[in-house]
Design a protein around this nucleic acid. Structure first.
Lengths: 171, 171
DNA sequence: AGCTGATATTTGAAATGTCAAAGGTTCGTG
DNA sequence: CACGAACCTTTGACATTTCAAATATCAGCT
């Protein structure tokens, strides 16, 4: 354990350099980024080996899973924080795999609604259960109080960042 | 301010659903992920519009900046958490732009060392200054104590995750 | 010297990511 | 009802991403 920690500290130093003189905001950002990358990569690896799926596909299906009626591609784009053009391709591939179905509603022919098929629903449910388990595993060494505290503190960071964006995010 | 916060809370709900029944680890993970995405996208946007650069290029140059003698591509891959094949293409484009130079040392002809050119050095220095400023801006509303606290708490998360990886990360 | 195994990088296929521009479709208003 | 603005999705050009397979080189051993 102690050894693993030491190795990890080294990794951090290697990744971001021995930058004692950086501003705290920058140090925090670099650590957030590397931590997120680390966990993302692990989740990607497991999704691929255990389910043959990708993380973006998982994210997209997660949105559809809780909207039985499906979602418009534009909504999907906002919720997954993925660009419109990207959603098109993702849905295309998921449709080819039989997990998602595309429908154009009668009312508005500009719109395309994507929804999970029955296959897609059961497939996603299995992935979601594993996904939640993996996260509990990976955060097993963290004090539960710290987890909830982190959740709210990161909320503060997110709020601050949201208030200082240049682009029009609140369309 | 209060309004912007309300809007942001809505965004979070939209992005991740009104999932009161999720495990804390999952909630924390989703929030970390969306926050990191939000800030990354803002940094990407600014790097592109103000410098015509991409975030991976910035990351790569950051590593070279603090190693005047340059780095082997494999080292670059580890430090940037980017795969080998990916580094090849990144360096290729940066070389075409005149910011990076590739050299094969005499001793070992398997190796390729990348280093910043003079142009690359001054270019990166300008980007780095802006980059640090942007982060201070985006985190301006966060209590400085919280920033340092977050830094160490996220360290705990990172350590825990490192200890529960499936793949061989500590080669 | 020649083999073998380890190292280092490149390549190729497929997916994801961005942005900008182009296509349709709908709606309000003249 | 026709026009133009607004809306939704797709397309196209590129960059990035991963993985696996291929290449190239080195180092050690016989």
């Amino acid at each position: 354990m102690a050894e693993a920690e030491a190795i990890n500290v080294d990794l951090e130093i290697i990744v971001h350099g021995a930058q004692g003189r950086s501003k705290p905001e920058l140090r925090l950002w670099l650590r957030m980024l590397s931590t997120t990358k680390l966990i993302s990569q692990e989740i990607r690896r497991r999704l691929r080996t255990e389910f043959g799926a990708t993380l973006p596909q998982f994210d997209l299906m997660a949105q559809l899973y809780r909207e039985k009626e499906g979602l418009r591609l534009g909504e999907l784009s906002k919720r997954t924080m993925v660009t419109n053009g990207n959603v098109t391709g993702l849905v295309e591939r998921l449709e080819a795999d039989g997990y998602v179905q595309r429908v154009t509603p009668d009312g508005d022919r500009r719109v395309t609604v994507a929804k999970l098929t029955e296959n897609g629903t059961t497939f996603f449910a299995a992935m979601a259960a594993a996904h939640e388990r993996w996260l509990q595993e990976m955060m097993a060494d963290v004090d539960p109080h710290m987890i909830t505290a982190l959740w709210s503190e990161i909320g503060a960071v997110k709020n601050s960042a949201s208030n200082h964006l240049s682009g029009a995010v609140f369309e």
